[in-house]
């Protein structure tokens, strides 16, 4: 979502204008929440999203211009990675189980028939499980690129790494996802045949 006067809102927010900041929150909360949802699962996504906006407000003085969405998603990504590290340190908590339990594949589609909806949900569940098998940095870049549609330039900002690293991570992440989905080729064929 693009905001008409995003730069002005950011500058006002930096001066302590909470209303201006909340306008930015409303514009980006869906993207931030969805990134957290895909990275962490439904159980932890809400807290991570809220934490992102609190952290963003506190760090506004550190924003030196550029792409605000990429800057915000970078904060969200860091919070998600911290949470993943915390989850890894807790042996009882399984990320795959958490992601599956709060599977965002259950998100209803706007206009889908019952059969298509069932297929879409099944594919979504598999995709989510496939994403959960990726290392965190590959999962992050795949979600940001292929789900959220960030440009490569935005990705370098959001991930804080070079274009070459971004390309390499995307290639490796996609190759893994391809392997995962090709093992469920039938599901993919049904889904895309149905779409045709």
């Amino acid at each position: 979502m693009a905001i008409a006067d995003e730069g002005q809102l950011v500058r006002s927010s930096q001066k302590g204008d909470l209303d201006a900041f909340n306008t930015l929150v409303q514009a980006y909360q869906r993207q931030v929440y969805n990134l957290c949802l895909r990275m962490l699962g439904a159980a932890a996504a809400e807290d991570a999203a809220q934490e992102t906006f609190i952290a963003a407000y506190r760090r506004l003085s550190g924003f030196r211009g550029g792409n605000f969405r990429a800057w915000l998603l970078r904060i969200a990504a860091n919070i998600c990675c911290d949470e993943l590290r915390r989850q890894r340190s807790r042996p009882a908590a399984s990320l795959a189980a958490a992601l599956e339990a709060g599977s965002p594949a259950d998100v209803p589609s706007d206009s889908a028939g019952p059969e298509e909806e069932a297929l879409r949900r099944e594919l979504g569940r598999h995709l989510q499980q496939g994403l959960a098998t990726l290392p965190a940095e590959q999962r992050l870049v795949i979600i940001l690129r292929d789900v959220h549609g960030l440009s490569y330039e935005e990705l370098t900002e959001a991930m804080g790494c070079s274009l070459g690293t971004v390309k390499s991570r995307i290639a490796r992440g996609r190759a893994r996802m391809r392997d995962y989905l090709m093992a469920r080729r039938e599901l993919l064929a049904r889904q895309f045949r149905h779409k045709e």
């Binding site: 909470l18 900041f21 909340n22 929150v25 409303q26 909360q29 869906r30 993207q31 931030v32 929440y33 969805n34 949802l37 895909r38 809400e46 999203a49 809220q50 992102t52 906006f53 609190i54 407000y57 965002p104 594949a105 998100v107 209803p108 589609s109 879409r120 594919l123 979504g124 995709l127 989510q128 795949i142 292929d146 789900v147 549609g149 996609r174 996802m177 391809r178 989905l181 993919l188 889904q191 895309f192």
Partner: peptide, 19 residues
């Protein structure tokens, strides 16, 4: 694969995260 990933729906935020 890219198309399938792109078909993942974006969930609505469960609540407002405004401060």
């Amino acid at each position: 694969t890219v198309e399938a990933l792109g078909s993942l729906p974006m969930a609505e935020a469960p609540r407002s995260f405004t401060l």
